[in-house]
Amino acid sequence: MSAGFLMFYSVLVLFGMMLLGIYGVVTRSNMVKKIIMLNIMGDAINMLFIIIGYRLVYPVFPPVYEGHIPFDEFLRTAVDPVPQALVLTAVVIGMAMNILLSTYAIQIYRLYGTVDVRDVAHLRREGK
């Protein structure tokens, strides 16, 4: 099992997982379920980003310099910090969206008595 094969395998599984998430968001009718699937999709995308920054060297270090190895070795073995910074931003934003979406789901249940999008659409068409 070569390194490249394992890398591609992981990336492909993550693509699959991302599409699974989108499929879930599109086809499930329960709003809370939609939120769960949205998160699964976001996780897959975040993981993909981190993989972009990974290095195929050994040993591999996180992008934090602790001073126990020489500086040029650190440069040779540390992973790319940029995708990590971007993912950090995306994780925060994802959480913000979660808060908002779950609040809306709760409020919809209070108003309509259901969180199923089909039922809600039906009630809405009746002009409630």
């Binding site: 890398m7 650190f74 440069l75 910090p81």
Partner: peptide, 23 residues
């Protein structure tokens, strides 16, 4: 990703921007 290696994953080098930040 696999056939055309669109992300450059097979070697996955350190991008120069990341190198700048690390350095």
């Amino acid at each position: 990703v696999v056939e055309k290696d669109v992300m450059g994953l097979s070697k996955n080098p350190l991008r120069p921007l990341g190198e700048f930040y690390l350095g």
